[in-house]
Design a protein around this nucleic acid. Sequence first.
DNA 1: ATAGGGTTAG
Length: 655
Amino acid sequence: MLAFNGLSPLQLPFPPKYSNCKTKTKQTFSIAAAYSIKTIPQHSIKNNKTIQSLCKQGNLKQALQILSNEPNPTQQTYELLILSCTQQNSLSDGVIVHRHLIDDGFDQDSFLATKLINMYTEFNSMDNALYVFDKILDKTIFVWNAIIRGFALSAHGEEALSLYYSMNQIGMPSDRFTYTYALKALVVSSPSISLIQKGKEIHGHILRHGFESYVHTMTTLMDMYARFGCVSYAKYVFVKMPEKNVVSWSAIIACYAKNERPVEALYLFWEMMSETFDVVPNSVTMVSVLQACAALSALGQGKLIHCYVLRRGFDSTLPVMNSLVNMYLKCGSLYIGQRIFDQMGKKDIVSWNSMIAGYTINGYGKEAVELFRDMIQNGVSPNIITFVSVLGACSHAGLVNEGKQIFDSMTRQHKVVPTVEHYACMVDLFGRAGRLDEAAKIVEGMRIEPGPTVWGSLLGACRIHCNVELAERASVRLFQLEPVNAGNFVLLAEIYAAAKMWEQVSKVKKLLEARNLQKVPGCSWIEVKRKIYSFVSIDELNPQMEQLHALLIHLSSEMKEKGYVPDTRVVLYELDQVEKERILLGHSEKLAVAFGLINSGRGETIRITKNLRLCEDCHSVTKFISKFTNREILVRDVNRIHRFREGFCSCGDYW
DNA sequence: ATAGGGTTAG
């Protein structure tokens, strides 16, 4: 049988009475079972009743006192005692009850074993839970389910799975609970390709054994696919589900929102609202829908959802409020987001983190750091995410010393151990500020293995400051760690291109071709009159393409008269100047800007989101357009929000 | 006796 590593936290001296459980026969169990129904003296019956009612009142200590002098507790009494220990959150009392239970010969009672396993699971004490499991001979489906559930809930996916497989091996048939726990176990296992395969196998078992009509099991199955990024499988399960409730709808919406398909998430939400009258969204649904709005900078949709939230009274639900704050901040509506944040009665770490990150992406680094200090003043402990956000704020605002100081305070003051991401932030902090030597020193002095994010930050810094030599060093490591990430190769090629090292540029491109790697295509989204439109570079299928292109060409020639020179460095193909410029004009964000100009009302702010970093040429073109057309244009790229107004960008050309 | 979906960063 599987052994769980680690000592029992309480070092239970088991078993005091039946010193050799393994040799016990089934007979012992039936004796124990019989014991619970044997006639017991009148005062014992009274004691049992007293213990039970004390447990129900939450007076565990007194119940335990009576228990210690009572030789005949019943199964029901033990059940209530165990439940009470869980409710009182007392592991040590739980162990006391467990010992008594063994002394009284209930250690082969599978009902109580299940209860004990569940109790130990609540306390995250899986060593003890496994102890109970190992000792119980009559392993009923409840016992099996309880132990698998316990390991799955405590994020020990591998242990849970291995138990699931041993259960199969001994021929114990799974039920719908077993499948849900096994699927949960997959989700919490350490990432591996084979997990998806195992998930599909479990899917097969579920179908073969006729469990496909259980909503709970199928929703978990869907969620498993969603978490592994298998969106089409999740959708398949969803479509096949005979009965869909608010949870299954929320799960599929969350699936799309989390897997970079926010447009479909919104589409599903409206489908849910219009096509099914018996399914009403709840606060959990709202969170995923708002996440989708945030991802798209779809302010119109977001405001509509906000109204719905108010109408349904979800504005007292913390996660919903956090999602609203996040949505407004991601849409660049700093003022509204800030106001909601200020007016929130309750705030948790997520609220603070969202607001800090919101200041950062909107270009308010100093305010982000101030809010970080406020948060500590308010007695809220920062976590890993807080530091990623606040260090990001420092690096975007060029607050190098501030960042250094905060990084030091992480371990010293706040007992948060820096992860690779935090080192990446530090590399970015020094790198952006042009202090590449110090950035490189950070990498050398790391206590943990620098991952791809760290080398990536360094390479990014080299791109900003055109440092070919360091870029080459960083990319050697980066290419080893991420051999199939085309973005890294493109970054290096851009650095060579900036240094006019054309031979090297073509070498990198050949490397890309040889490995058959493709750049992630640029994609931009824009919301006009509450409808979402998406653009990819030079999209022949777009019916308005000619019109968009004509407008861009017109704007481009106007700009050239005013001294604009197209920045073709990002075009890595060997083409003549005219062709390069044509490709540049086809960048998805330019198309989205042109679309916004044509289709939205005069004076309306144009809001765009894109999946990559904004290129230099698009940046200068959008600056120009904002002035020329007297429009405010917001573009959110992967890093931050650029607010273009009257020829200037809020990022101060530093991004 | 046991069960499903949600928020923040990169």
